[in-house]
């Protein structure tokens, strides 16, 4: 190797050494760029080197060029490495800065609750719709005609005493039961009639177990051939779906003016039985009242108090909580069902 080449090499080695030291010393992007420009920039250290290339022998130029390129690449690599190091450091710093206390509370919109009575009502409706009952509806301000007379409870009937009634002017009252919807449905539709009517009912009575407003769901199925066996079949299935497949369901005779025979239905509960609904075969007088022929059509009706069911289901101890709308009460029912 000629002296000239050797000198070049030494110089390049020196440059590489300098570059290495500069790169190692920078820790900011700007310094790095500036440092890199000192070597590789337009006015950088390679400028004079390149100019010297021209003064070399023609024969030495390829070798010298190779040396220079090699050195350039090495220096580029040094700075690339430094860039990677700086970027990594910046990232590390950013990550560190982004470290949070994941146990702090999140930004919530705490879910609201469906009212427990509504929750039970929804469930009952879904179940009965599944069983082929259609939803029907009637007014809450009813007439004596629909609430009592048509249901075989004439004015003199002692059963009217069973239901303390809120009266309005004229023959109007707040319905004491959802049963008038039966009458309206049968007046509107020829058999088969297969409806349920959930809704608010009213009795002038208030204490720990009675509320002047509560909720019932009424069911009616009238056709040419609907028997008491159907009543038992439908209600057993319904109640077992509601309370559990292995629950005992008991049917016993009772009295309602608008059904005959009448049934009270109990579900096994703890050591005993819990009364859950009243039912029966639609009374022939009720059928006649709506213009049906009781020798041609027959069927059953049932009615069930929803609030008490909700109280049992959720362990609510006082019916007054249901209508107080205290959020400390309601919020307990916000969990998914």
């Amino acid at each position: 190797m000629s002296d000239a080449l050797a000198a070049l090499r030494a110089r390049l080695d020196d440059l590489r050494e300098q570059a290495r030291s500069v790169a190692a010393g920078v820790d900011r992007d700007a310094d790095l760029n500036e440092g890199k420009a000192r070597f590789l920039g337009r006015k950088g250290a390679f400028g004079p080197v390149m100019r010297e290339l021209g003064s070399l022998d023609r024969a030495q130029r390829p070798a010298a060029g190779a040396l220079i390129n090699e050195a350039k690449q090495a220096i580029e690599a040094v700075f690339a490495e430094a860039r990677a190091r700086i970027e990594q450091k910046a990232l590390d710093a950013a990550l560190e800065a982004g470290r949070i206390d994941v146990t702090l509370p999140g930004r919530r919109s705490a879910p609201g609750a469906t009212h427990p009575v509504q929750a039970v009502l929804d469930e009952l409706v879904d179940l009965l719709v599944e069983l082929g009952f259609a939803l029907a509806d009637g007014p809450e301000v009813e007439t004596e005609h629909y609430n009592f007379d048509q249901l075989n409870m004439p004015a003199s009937h002692p059963a009217r005493d069973m239901q303390d009634t809120f009266y309005l002017q004229g023959d109007l009252l707040l319905r004491t039961q959802t049963s008038p919807v039966q009458i309206r449905a049968m007046e509107d539709t020829k058999p088969p009639v297969r409806i349920i009517a959930p809704g608010k009912v009213f009795r002038c009575d208030a204490d720990v177990t009675h509320s002047p407003t509560f909720h019932q769901i009424e069911g009616l199925w009238v056709d040419t051939d609907v028997t008491m066996a159907d009543l038992k079949g439908v209600l057993s299935y319904f109640l077992r779906r509601l309370f559990g497949a292995d629950r005992g369901v008991r049917f016993r005779p009772s009295f309602f003016p608008f059904t005959e025979p009448s049934v009270e239905v109990d579900v096994e509960f703890g050591d005993g039985w819990m009364e859950v609904l009243g039912a029966g075969m639609v009374h022939p007088r009720v059928l006649r009242n709506v213009g049906f022929d009781p020798t041609a059509v027959q069927g059953f009706a049932f009615g069930l108090g929803v609030d008490r069911l909700a109280m049992v289901r959720y362990g609510i101890t006082d019916i007054r909580y249901l209508f107080e709308n205290d959020q400390r009460f309601l919020t307990q029912f916000a969990r998914g069902r």
Binding site: L131, A229, D230, F251, E260, P261, P284, P294
Partner: peptide, 23 residues
């Protein structure tokens, strides 16, 4: 009414005697 007598018969023999078919 005849329906009243049906109830008399049914309650005497017991409602349990009436079958419980699937809906």
């Amino acid at each position: 009414e005849a329906a009243d007598l049906v109830e008399e018969v049914a309650r005497y023999v017991g409602y349990a005697i009436i079958p419980t078919p699937p809906p």
